[in-house]
C-alpha cells in the first residue's frame, strides 16, 4: 500500500517536472517569477470558488487563473500603473478574497495547509491522469513555440517586426503557466509552486551552455529535488512540499558553490 502511494507520488512529481522545467526557464529568463507568484496566490480564490460551488478544484482554479491572465494582459497594455504594482494588488486581493470566502463556508474544517503547502502523497488517480495529460501538452506546446518564445525573450519588438504574433504566444505561455500552477498546487502548494519554477532553472544556469541544455538540466534537477523531498517526507515524516523545496534549494547552493568546470 505504501509502495503504490509512493509510486503515485513519484509519477506525479515526474509529470510536474516535465512541465515546470520548460516553463520555469522562461519564467527566469523573462523575469516573470512575480507573475507566477501572483497566479499561484490567485489559485486560492479559485479553490474557494470550487469549494463554494462544489466543483472540481482544478477546473475552478484554472478558470480563475485564465481570467486573471487575460485581465492582467489588458491592464498591462494600458500601462496606467507599474506592472509589479498591478500584480501585487491582484495577487493579494485574490488570496485574501479566497481566504475570506473559505472562512464563510458552512463546512469550516477545510484543511488549508494542504493547499498552501501541497500534499503529493495524497494524489488520487484522477489527478494523476490530469497531470499526465498536461505533462504531454505543455512540453509539446513549448517545443512548437520555442523559437518564437526565445526571440521574444531576447527582444519583443524585434520578434514582432520579424512576424511573430507576440500577443498570441504570450497568451499561450501565460495560460500554460496558469494550468501548471493550478496542478502544481497539489504537489508543492500555492506558497511554494513558484520555487519549483525558478530554483531548478537558477541552479541549471550554472552549467547550462545553451537554452535547450538549460531546460534538460532543469528537468534533471527538478526530478532530483522531488525525489529527495518525497523520500524525506516518507522517512522522516516531514511535509512533502516544503521538503521538495528544501531539496531544490540545497542543490542550488551546492551548484553555485562548485567550481564551474566539473
Amino acid at each position: 500500500m505504501m509502495d503504490s502511494l509512493m509510486l503515485d507520488a513519484l509519477l506525479a512529481g515526474l509529470c510536474l517536472a516535465v512541465m515546470t522545467a520548460p516553463l520555469g526557464v522562461f519564467v527566469v529568463w523573462r523575469r516573470m517569477s512575480y507573475f507566477g507568484d501572483s497566479l499561484a496566490h490567485s489559485a486560492l480564490l479559485g479553490l474557494a470558488i470550487a469549494l463554494w460551488l462544489n466543483i472540481a478544484h482544478f477546473l475552478a482554479i484554472a478558470a480563475v487563473s485564465v481570467l486573471i491572465v487575460i485581465v492582467l494582459m489588458v491592464l498591462q497594455k494600458k500601462q496606467s500603473l507599474p506592472n509589479d504594482t498591478i500584480l501585487g494588488i491582484f495577487s493579494h486581493t485574490a488570496l485574501s478574497t479566497g481566504l475570506v470566502m473559505i472562512s464563510l463556508l458552512d463546512t469550516p474544517n477545510v484543511d488549508l495547509m494542504q493547499f498552501l503547502l501541497g500534499d503529493i502523497l495524497s494524489i488520487g488517480p484522477s489527478e494523476l491522469w490530469l497531470l499526465a495529460s498536461l505533462s504531454l501538452i505543455v512540453p509539446i506546446t513549448i517545443a512548437l513555440t520555442w523559437r518564437a518564445l526565445l526571440l521574444m525573450t531576447v527582444h519583443c519588438e524585434l520578434a514582432q517586426v520579424e512576424g511573430i504574433a507576440v500577443t498570441r504566444i504570450h497568451l499561450i505561455f501565460s495560460l500554460l503557466l496558469a494550468f501548471v500552477i493550478a496542478m502544481g498546487m497539489k504537489v508543492v502548494g500555492i506558497l511554494l509552486i513558484t520555487s519549483l519554477l525558478i530554483i531548478p532553472p537558477a541552479t541549471a544556469r550554472r552549467f547550462a551552455k545553451s537554452p535547450e541544455h538549460m531546460v534538460f538540466l532543469s528537468f534533471a534537477i527538478s526530478c532530483c529535488s522531488i525525489l529527495a523531498g518525497i523520500l524525506a517526507s516518507f522517512w522522516y515524516d516531514t511535509p512533502p512540499g516544503p521538503s521538495i523545496v528544501v531539496g531544490a534549494a540545497s542543490l542550488f547552493i551546492v551548484a553555485w558553490s562548485l567550481p564551474r568546470r566539473l
Binding site: 527566469v28 526565445l150 519588438e157 512576424g163 537558477a202 544556469r205 537554452p211 538549460m214
Partner: peptide
C-alpha cells in the same frame, strides 16, 4: 530592423551565433 538597445537577461545562455540562428 535594428532595435535601439538589447539588454538580455544574463540567465539566458545564448551565443551570438545561436541568437542569429533564431528565426525561420
Amino acid at each position: 530592423y535594428m532595435p535601439q538597445r538589447l539588454s538580455i537577461n544574463t540567465t539566458l545562455p545564448i551565443t551570438v551565433e545561436k541568437f542569429l540562428l533564431l528565426g525561420k
